[in-house]
């Protein structure tokens, strides 16, 4: 997409296009945005945090952003993130959006789901 095209587009879309291009760029470079929603420090939560950290370090070193959100403390995120189960890992980027629920102990399934390994 050339610069002129972008400027012709309506203002509203310009932002979206920008966002989209940014996302495309990030996915191109393989940047991951991951959010892990946990409900307090339950055994499941602790296991999940450990597991995702391990996966990130082993497979996504240098190209990921991991946010850990405690929905006990910030319940509004549970609604906004459409969280039902805990713990839930949401792969916001790259698209498609994907949710992993559970303590993230099944590493193979996560790697497949994160498109880090072919099935």
């Amino acid at each position: 997409m050339s610069e002129t095209d972008r400027n012709d587009a309506p203002l509203l879309f310009r932002d979206m296009i920008g966002e989209f291009e940014l996302a495309l760029e990030e996915s191109g470079t393989g940047n991951y945005l991951l959010r892990l929603y946990v409900s307090g420090m339950t055994p499941n939560s602790i296991r999940a945090i450990e597991n995702i950290r391990k996966i990130c370090v082993e497979h996504l070193e240098g190209r990921y952003q991991l946010e850990i959100i405690d929905i006990y403390q910030q319940p509004i995120f549970a609604k906004e993130g459409q969280i039902i189960a805990a713990p839930t890992l949401v792969k916001e980027l790259p698209p498609p959006l994907r949710k992993f629920i559970g303590d993230l102990s099944q590493t193979e399934r996560i790697l497949v789901g994160l498109d880090l390994r072919k099935k």
Partner: peptide, 10 residues
């Protein structure tokens, strides 16, 4: 994707 134990705390 289910990847282990979970509950519906959310």
């Amino acid at each position: 994707e289910e990847t282990g134990e979970y509950d519906l705390e959310g």
